[in-house]
Computed example of a mutant assay.
Amino acid sequence: MSKPRALLLVGVMFWLSGCANSPHRLPYDSWRLGLFAPNYMEVWIETADAVDVQDRAFRRAMSGLAAINTPKNIKGNPRGWPQRPGAGKGKQVLGADLPRLIYVRWQSLVEPQTYEAYIIIPEATRQAMLKGEKTFCQADAKWITGYRDVLTVGLAPGGVTRVWLMGACLAPIDVARVQGTVVKKGPYGGKASGYYRPPNEASRAYIEKYGVPYGSW
């Protein structure tokens, strides 16, 4: 066998081996991590990290303000969780396999307090992420094969987290409720000298009038 042909054969075998061991086995390009807070209970996310089943870490998959509704007439209701939460504010976790763990460190601006939580994703949730379901989308009146490819995390005062698995035109699945713990060093591990940015005007107005509804989440 000629040398060029031998090199070509080695290259093809290496490529095939790589395909056989490819970690990407999802029926879609990527899954999404989104985060939100109850009405008026404003949250600043320092980091939201994901670890997949191959123990690869995807750091700062999300940071910044979580999704939130703050009606200016302060008549919104922050108590409890919505039956159908939105996708939240977040990003696609590109290149990740199925999730094993989500780590979130955040500042609850209305308290203020800094929390962290380690959220274990159950195997049943991962299996649900691989399952296509035929469903009817009312928005465009079409039947589709949908996948639950969105993990949504709710962050509430007191360090409470709640997680759902969601997909286009599919009912959300309740994944977990996890109690976070206080980060004693404060914002950014003590690097912010204890400074918390103030909540937005509507959040401040709600808290001044009604307080924080602890125990409702």
Rank of each mutant, 00 (worst) to 15 (best):
G11P: 02
G11Q: 08
V12H: 05
F14Y: 12
F14D: 03
C19W: 14
A20R: 07
S22A: 15
P23W: 14
H24T: 06
S30H: 09
W31G: 06
N39M: 14
Y40N: 12
V43Q: 04
I45Q: 02
A48C: 06
V51P: 01
Q54Y: 12
A57K: 15
A57T: 14
A61L: 03
L65E: 10
A66R: 09
A67M: 09
I68R: 08
N69T: 09
T70L: 04
P78V: 12
R79D: 12
P82H: 04
P82K: 03
G86S: 09
K89D: 11
K91Q: 09
Q92V: 01
V93Q: 09
V93F: 15
L94H: 14
L94V: 13
L98I: 05
I102N: 09
W106D: 00
Q107S: 09
L109I: 10
L109G: 00
V110A: 07
Y115A: 00
E116L: 03
I120Q: 07
P122D: 13
R126E: 06
A128L: 10
A128W: 04
L130S: 06
L130G: 06
G132V: 03
E133M: 08
E133T: 15
C137R: 09
T145R: 11
D149N: 14
D149A: 09
L151G: 04
L151W: 03
T152E: 06
T152P: 03
G158Y: 02
T161N: 04
M166H: 01
G167A: 06
A171K: 12
A171Y: 03
I173P: 09
V175L: 02
G180D: 00
V182S: 00
Y188D: 05
K191Q: 13
A192C: 04
S193A: 10
Y196K: 01
A205V: 08
Y206V: 13
Y206F: 15
I207K: 02
Y210A: 15
V212N: 11
P213Y: 13
